[in-house]
Amino acid sequence: MAGRADKEYLGSSVGKVGIAIDVESVQEVFEARLITRLPGCPAFVSGMINIRGSVIPVLDLLKVFDPAAAVKRVAILKTSEGLVGLLIGVLDDLLRFDSLEQGGAVPDVLKGVGHVLGPKGVAGGREYYLVDVERMIASTLPHKAQ
């Protein structure tokens, strides 16, 4: 499958594996110091943060939340459910892929989001799995829960 050389992705490492998010889905990457826990929500909802006066939920779908970390990196995603933050790990450069390939086994670290992963590409010697943001968010909503 040919990648689109003009399409850029936000890359982030999850362990030794990378995930790539279409940069057009990303409003910004925010470094949050305080995430306020939100009772009454599922565990993957880490809490709420303040971005310039708006209260945005933050999800930990990649299981990268480290309570001890002074700064938590949040990718603020533009979705049909409004702005939603996703906790991400180490930020890589913006990526472009010459080619993408389908299938393959989902690495253990990404098992939690395996159902919303797209094809994978290689950049800088590392494999990145494309994440379908809308599907990912939709899959967390109550009526979609299996």
């Binding site: 939100l38 009772p39 009454g40 929500c41 599922p42 909802v45 709420m48 006066g53 708006s54 209260v55 945005i56 939920p57 979705t79 459910e81 409004g82 702005l83 939603v84 968010i137 909503l141 109550p142």
Partner: peptide
């Protein structure tokens, strides 16, 4: 401040 559309899906009563 409202909790937003996403959180409204879970409607936390607290």
């Amino acid at each position: 401040k409202p909790l937003g559309k996403y959180v409204a899906n879970f409607a936390p009563p607290e």
